[in-house]
Design a protein around this nucleic acid. Sequence first.
DNA 1: GTCTATAGTTCGATAGAC
DNA 2: GTCTATCGAACTATAGAC
Lengths: 223, 223
Amino acid sequence: MAAKPPTPSRSSSREEILDAAEEVFAARGYAGASMRAIADGAGVAQALLHYHFKTKEGLFEAMFLRRAGAINRIRIARLDAMLSRGRPSVEDIIEALLRPAVETGDAPMQGGARFAALILELSTADAAWQRDLMARAYDAMATRFIAALMTALPGLDRAGATWGYLFVVGAALTQMPSTGRAHRLSRGATEDADTDAMITRAIIFAAAGLRALAVPMPDHFES
Amino acid sequence: MAAKPPTPSRSSSREEILDAAEEVFAARGYAGASMRAIADGAGVAQALLHYHFKTKEGLFEAMFLRRAGAINRIRIARLDAMLSRGRPSVEDIIEALLRPAVETGDAPMQGGARFAALILELSTADAAWQRDLMARAYDAMATRFIAALMTALPGLDRAGATWGYLFVVGAALTQMPSTGRAHRLSRGATEDADTDAMITRAIIFAAAGLRALAVPMPDHFES
DNA sequence: GTCTATAGTTCGATAGAC
DNA sequence: GTCTATCGAACTATAGAC
């Protein structure tokens, strides 16, 4: 789909830089990361980063789109497979949306957990280029899932489906970087690193929440 | 409750620095903000920031605890008032948790919307001092609300109530900085800046989600 | 308590050799 | 494509006068 260099083995250091950028950006955020730290992580000279990506912003963009694109392709593939087999349940749709975010596997990061922090930073930023990047990385995928939710849940209008989608993503994304908070607040009853338990509960939580939003409107409307 | 300087009018510039710090930190994040920009915003010399708060970290801490404390006091007051009047519904509890976050009013920020981005940055950070600050700012309040949820929803165990609390906060917090995303994804069917519509839907969504978590376990368990 | 001035680092980016 | 070397700007923090 995207333009790829015709050379069969594209310059290997370019990918190594992107790998290192993922680690450093995810650990320290955009502003907190430095080109020097990324160059060191990749084992190349700092100038090479500027040769390949021109600016820090350009490197961040390439890094972010690579990872987000990889995850979104899995999401869409799962959704398409489900749709071709019949009418998926709300739970199925949510699972196809959330699981790929924690099952990255192929690139060097702890289960995509820290990448979630990066998405949150980007999605709440107010710089124009960050909002644009967020839109380019996720809007197409989000539109597909919002449509799927409206099909699975007649009675859910577009505004409700949109807020519902954003709630689901926000609820799950904020729990992915394991900070020890769930363990502490639950007095040891659960573990942050147990992403499976978290995702399982998130699906139950989100499916019920979406079904409630599908009811036209409770009985009063205000403001 | 906290130690206050005995002087009736405490150095006014100290508060002005905190006000400016809120704006700059919320707009650019911790790493992206500079002491210079904060000093300029407060109209004082940069050295004065270090006199009052010693380091950038110290200033961030003071700023964050002041704002978080103010919001949490309102939350706890609302919860206590409800509890003294009988058994509040899940919706009431969630409303007491979410509304104060968007109705800050007294300090100079656009409805506390951008402060939410700061909370998200802090809650997903992995530096020790940031996790400690997060715990000091929110754990006591969170514990009260988790307990209230368990009382309102028998069948909700501590692990479920904890994840539920975290889901609710994550779902709502991620929507507070209005980025135009909801407007775009819904094709104009809703507006990001309409926080009342967002909060109203968040309460419906979250209440249903929490009730679903209160059911011991659906009927199958997988993975 | 508030200022000016500056020390000491670190940053993003570029020039230019190979 | 990759490197060394470096520029100029920004940063946090401190010293010291008032």
